[in-house]
């Protein structure tokens, strides 16, 4: 039972990071149709920025803010400089993101070598609750994610910007006709998604050491979660993130750890075969003249 609770906690903390990626992925896809595989690299850069900041003697909270700002800015530059030109042909946007993966990874390798990077745990306390050892850093990751996700929900469901955003995801052209500046929302979503990935990277490096190649597996899990939940569906992404995190936690706890990475892919393939629009229903991307 102790192991059970501990594994759920471990699973949930990883699920938090994956959910942060999945929200960005799902929003960007829902609005632009672009499958941005480089999102995992955004996360990795967030981790690297955190590592640099902490190594330079800054505190962890400040490093997190820096990571969010830096990756958000990167998202803005890339959207303005590259992705904006691929809106008419989302497949090209996808290919550009593949190029970005290669470039971003190797730029990081070039400057900061390919080895693992880690920071001292920002919180070292381990609570002992009735024999269950709970690492406070994991609780911190889960709580920050819950707060950020709740805030995003609030923004998307209650504010008029959120309503306009959802209208644009539903039908870009009609939304534009209603006077919603869809292009600006696309930029906004790229920045928001990137900032969330930056936060995810900062949280990830608080949990595990990262390498310049961490982004690859993480983005696949983010995509798996986004697809399982239904692309464009934020609620679905969060729910699917929880499912995946718990499944991975269990399998690691009960001796199948070498298969952990396989679950997300297998689960995704299964869900797509049975329910191509995800468990919770999503959009199939913006309708556009193909």
């Amino acid at each position: 039972m102790d192991i059970f609770i501990q594994q759920i906690l471990n699973g949930l903390s990883i699920a938090s990071v994956i959910t942060l990626i999945a929200i960005g992925v799902t929003l960007i896809f829902g609005l632009t149709g672009i499958i941005n595989f480089a999102h995992g690299e955004f996360l990795m850069i967030g981790g690297i920025v955190t590592w640099l900041a902490v190594s330079a003697g800054l505190g962890f909270p400040l490093a997190v803010v820096l990571a969010i700002l830096a990756v958000g800015l990167m998202g803005y530059i890339l959207e303005r400089g590259l992705f904006r030109f691929t809106l008419e042909r989302p497949t090209n946007g996808f290919i550009v993101s593949l190029g970005l993966i290669v470039v971003l990874q190797h730029v990081v390798v070039l400057f900061w070598n390919p080895n693992q990077k880690s920071i001292p745990r920002p919180l070292t306390t381990v609570w002992d609750v009735g024999g269950v050892r709970i690492a406070s850093v994991r609780v911190m990751v889960i709580l920050i994610t819950i707060a950020v996700v709740a805030l995003s929900f609030r923004m998307i469901t209650a504010s008029r910007y959120g309503r306009a955003l959802r209208a644009s995801v539903e039908d870009r052209d009609t939304a534009a006709l209603m006077g919603i500046p869809v292009r600006r929302y696309i930029t906004g979503v790229f920045v928001l998604g990137s900032a969330l990935a930056g936060l995810g990277g900062a949280l990830l490096i608080a949990l595990f050491p990262i390498t310049p190649f961490t982004g690859g597996t993480m983005v696949m899990k983010g995509f798996a979660v986004a697809l399982i939940g239904g692309l464009g569906n934020i609620y679905g992404a969060v729910a699917a993130g929880l499912i995946l995190g718990i499944v991975e936690g269990f399998s690691a706890g009960y001796g199948f750890s070498q298969w952990t990475d396989a679950y997300s892919f297998a689960l995704m393939i299964l869900v797509l075969i049975v329910r191509p629009h995800g468990l919770f229903g999503g959009t199939s991307g913006p309708r556009m003249a193909s």
Partner: peptide
């Protein structure tokens, strides 16, 4: 890095 940049340039 050059491949990646080439790929992006070719696509754009």
């Amino acid at each position: 890095i050059v491949y990646g940049v080439c790929l992006i340039a070719v696509i754009m």
